[in-house]
Amino acid sequence: MASHITDELCAWIGREVSYTAPEALGAASIRYFALALGDANPLYQDEAFAAQTRHGGVIAPPTLVCETNQIYQSPPDENGYIGHCWPLPVADTRFIRGGNEYEFHQPVRAEDRITATWRILDIFERETRQGGALIFVVSEARFTNQRAELLAINRETNIYRP
């Protein structure tokens, strides 16, 4: 079976791209995200309550920083998507999400202006039990604030099925 891992595709390993949000995250984004999850935790919206906790004020729900496309400024594509995407040379494949590993380094706050730095860690191929091939792409996004402090890391694996 011919490998789908071409030199052109391999050249993407190690590539990096950075995006900085045009504005701070904002209290409204935090409250909206909590609302979408049915999450009434006062830590995310009650400043007087949150000030009494070890966090010293309102913080964002943990995964918001890894999930928000507020960071990106591209116009929506034909299907409405505006987030980060690698333009990999993988024509005629189906995209499948493989999984996420998050590390959280410090709480994210309304005043944080977030930068996301994406990097491709690895690209490899695995054979399926049926004898087909799957292309695995492992990426890492590091999220920092306006003081260049590390907030969180998201490592994700995506699968392209020819």
């Binding site: 909206y32 609302l35 999930e67 496309n69 990106y72 929506p76 299907n79 409405g80 505006i82």
Partner: peptide, 11 residues
Amino acid sequence: TYAGATWDFHR
């Protein structure tokens, strides 16, 4: 609601 809260407007 979640798609909106994450600025994910994919159809």
